[in-house]
Design a protein around this nucleic acid. Sequence first.
DNA 1: TGCCATACTTACGAGACCGTAGGTTACGGT
DNA 2: ACCGTAACCTACGGTCTCGTAAGTATGGCA
Lengths: 233, 233
Amino acid sequence: MAIDSSASNGSKGKSSGSSGSPASGTRRARRVRMTGAERREQLLDIGRTLFAERGYEGTSVEEIAAKAGVSKPVVYEHFGGKEGLYAVVVDREMRQLLDMVTGALTAGHPRELLEQAAFALLDYIETFTDGFRILVRDSPVAQSTGTFASLISDIATQVEDILGLEFKARGFDPKLAPLYAQALVGMVALTGQWWVDARKPKKAEVAAHLVNLAWHGLGNLEPKPRLIGHRKN
Amino acid sequence: MAIDSSASNGSKGKSSGSSGSPASGTRRARRVRMTGAERREQLLDIGRTLFAERGYEGTSVEEIAAKAGVSKPVVYEHFGGKEGLYAVVVDREMRQLLDMVTGALTAGHPRELLEQAAFALLDYIETFTDGFRILVRDSPVAQSTGTFASLISDIATQVEDILGLEFKARGFDPKLAPLYAQALVGMVALTGQWWVDARKPKKAEVAAHLVNLAWHGLGNLEPKPRLIGHRKN
DNA sequence: TGCCATACTTACGAGACCGTAGGTTACGGT
DNA sequence: ACCGTAACCTACGGTCTCGTAAGTATGGCA
């Protein structure tokens, strides 16, 4: 419950490294038996992958353990069970996504905020695809919190606040802010979900077009939208 | 494989009706033993409800049978198994939704099309909430077809065609049509998902605002958007 | 070198669930 | 009143999975 370094060593099977600078403290690199923390991270990694591709119920503890090269009780030792592991995986992903999006929603002009948030979400999706897949799927445990819908709503709430202010300043009904917030977030989220598979335009371009649509509308689309902040990747 | 009447008698448990005009042909109303078709419809109804709230893997055949007041083999008799029943449920829902949306995408002006499609989706969500929940969840069987993503893509493809023409006429790159189509569909779909729970503004109003956003953009929002076609419910 | 904590294993109990074999009851026509 | 068919049931085999009990190896440290 304390470790939070996103180390994520991608070792699978039992192949051992060749040489190596000592990774942590006085420990040697080549070994089968891991530190508690190392094993924990490895299990989280594997769990995330499997949960992403098979869902919660479709993944068995034995499978996770096997892929990590250990036996079931190890998993129970670390996380108390399947739900425990799943909870940690989901929690970390939600944190990650929320941090990225929230971080993007701090600058100034609403249009910039929109642009940054859209880009941030796409960035998260690209970087943590498995996590995104897990969040999109339905969480069996913890209906109230932990759902993707609740996460989306969480983000939407932040957008709401921004929109609410803007609406007030422009004389619109602020009660409609949630609706528009939801629509905007939904637009970006589902576009992201689509973009996960068909990565046709580049991330920045997708973001630019999303902003274009959201800001100008179909009636006044710009032919060649550009992001204000210049991003490369 | 032939019945398609959406009768959906909501009988649960074993309580028998009181009086009653004969429902079909010469049969009496009060009876425990149903016709094959009746039982089939009932099982589909119950299955849809349970799948909607617990997901595919979270629902057991025994549970479905129990809720219908019969035993497992009846389910196997009708649908050959859990997957069979699920497949029929999903198929019907996809058909329903696709019909409604496709039907809404036949008129003339793009803006009208957008308006009608948005309304159609909201209408489907309101009327067949359970079905929508099932479609939104992930289908375990049949990865290629049957997924919500594929359905969304299916709808998005139709929107693509419309947008593609419009883009060409306006001198935009038609290759971007998929992106904008996905964004629009995503906007409406996730707003609908949100609206399922918090039914705050009325359906028509939501549709009007969605059209407002999609058409004018945040930069040129109309204060009081109205639907062109006047709908009541 | 021997000890001891930590990492890890084998083996198993308990329960859930799918799917089926074979038998039973009610309904409708004759 | 009888009989066949369609609807339905009890009971069970087999598989899968979670979770636990009890025992084994490994590696640092006195």
